[in-house]
């Protein structure tokens, strides 16, 4: 029983660490890194769902030698996560470009320091 959920538990732990990094760190880059971790953990969750024990990658095997049809893992979660990875990198790129501009106009990438400024949002 417990071993069956091991992947999900790892997902939960990664997710918690990522979320904590996002919320607790004031450095904007660190926040972005935390956000990436947070997203990666969700990828693990989806991919774990699609796995079938003893299964193989969902690519048709042409020459079946032992006469047993192979068991394939579910391709759907893979597709979803491919999309999610793309969304993740898109978000990262946009976030980092904002960080660069923030650093240029505020001279710092520390959220606390920006908040201390007079017009710091």
């Amino acid at each position: 029983m417990s071993i069956g959920f091991f992947n999900y538990w790892v997902f939960i732990i990664l997710l918690m660490i990522g979320l904590y990094t996002v919320m607790s760190r004031s450095n904007l880059i660190k926040k972005m890194i935390g956000l990436s971790l947070f997203q990666i953990s969700v990828f693990l969750f989806y991919i774990s769902m699609g796995k079938v024990s003893g299964g193989t990658a969902p690519i048709v095997v042409e020459n079946i030698t032992d006469g047993v049809a192979p068991v394939y893992s579910n391709p759907l979660p893979h597709v979803l996560i491919l999309t999610a990875i793309v969304v993740g990198i898109a978000t990262t790129a946009l976030g980092l470009s904002l960080v660069v501009r923030i650093r240029e106009s505020f001279g710092t990438i520390d959220e606390d320091e920006i908040l201390e400024m007079k017009d710091g949002a």
Partner: peptide
């Protein structure tokens, strides 16, 4: 992911 059969991912 490879060990979980998701080679593309």
């Amino acid at each position: 992911f490879i060990s979980l059969d998701a080679v593309d991912v």
